Simulated assay, not measured.
Amino acid sequence: MTVKSKDKQVLVSARGSAFPPLEVDEGASVPIEEIEYVESGNYTEFVSEEIIKSERPDLGSAKVVVSGGRGLKNKEDFDKILNPLAEKLGAAIGASRAAVDSGFCDNSLQVGQTGKVVAPDLYIAVGISGAIQHLAGMKDSKVIVAINKDEESPIFNVADISLVGDAFEVVPELTEKL
């Protein structure tokens, strides 16, 4: 895409996970150019970055994401239910804002409008009701599996596979069968 603007200041952003990687054809008629950094004259300064190290795939680019919500009740249950499943699937772990706000996990794992936007091949939502803010962050997932004991949960409206059941029974059984 070529974009031209007459404005002095331009801000462009694109969700990296919203589009598949570009297949580069060496004989393509449309050139892809790498543009050098241009000094903008603004007065911002990079101060620092704190990165939490994990052996799991990066949430933003993972092919499989297992996310937990308030339905998992506490940090111990969140870890006990999600970690074995994520381990079996080689998945990243995500969370709803309710789970993050309740202290179940670090906010770097939040999926949603105020968290990370993900579009994995498989997204498994465990104990997540499906608030619109959460759906905004995972709706582009290829296959969505929802596990929730409330059959009226909005998450089931976007799920490809819906499982109404108690996550504390269903997820360990699923993990064992994998």
Results as ranks from 00 to 15, higher is better:
1 M>N: 12
2 T>C: 10
4 K>G: 13
5 S>W: 04
7 D>V: 07
10 V>Y: 02
12 V>M: 15
14 A>M: 12
15 R>Y: 14
17 S>M: 14
19 F>M: 14
21 P>Q: 03
21 P>E: 08
24 V>L: 12
31 P>I: 10
34 E>R: 04
35 I>F: 00
35 I>H: 07
37 Y>I: 08
38 V>I: 13
41 G>D: 12
42 N>I: 07
45 E>Y: 06
47 V>Y: 05
47 V>D: 13
50 E>C: 12
54 S>N: 01
56 R>G: 04
57 P>E: 13
60 G>M: 12
60 G>L: 15
61 S>I: 11
63 K>W: 11
66 V>N: 08
66 V>W: 11
66 V>L: 08
68 G>R: 09
70 R>G: 02
73 K>M: 06
74 N>H: 15
74 N>S: 06
78 F>Y: 07
80 K>I: 09
82 L>M: 01
82 L>H: 04
82 L>W: 04
84 P>C: 01
88 K>S: 02
90 G>F: 14
91 A>P: 07
92 A>D: 04
96 S>G: 02
97 R>G: 06
99 A>M: 00
102 S>K: 02
104 F>N: 02
109 L>D: 02
111 V>W: 02
113 Q>V: 10
113 Q>N: 01
115 G>Q: 09
116 K>C: 14
116 K>P: 07
117 V>P: 12
119 A>L: 12
121 D>G: 15
125 A>G: 03
126 V>Y: 07
127 G>N: 14
128 I>V: 08
128 I>K: 13
129 S>Y: 01
134 H>G: 10
135 L>S: 05
136 A>M: 05
139 K>V: 12
140 D>K: 15
140 D>V: 09
140 D>Q: 15
141 S>K: 13
142 K>H: 09
146 A>Y: 08
146 A>Q: 08
147 I>D: 11
147 I>M: 01
150 D>S: 02
151 E>H: 06
151 E>G: 00
151 E>I: 04
154 P>L: 08
156 F>T: 07
158 V>N: 01
159 A>P: 01
159 A>H: 13
159 A>E: 08
161 I>D: 08
164 V>D: 14
164 V>K: 07
164 V>E: 15
165 G>C: 08
166 D>C: 03
168 F>P: 00
170 V>M: 01
170 V>E: 02
170 V>N: 05
175 T>D: 07
176 E>D: 05
176 E>R: 04
177 K>M: 10
178 L>G: 03
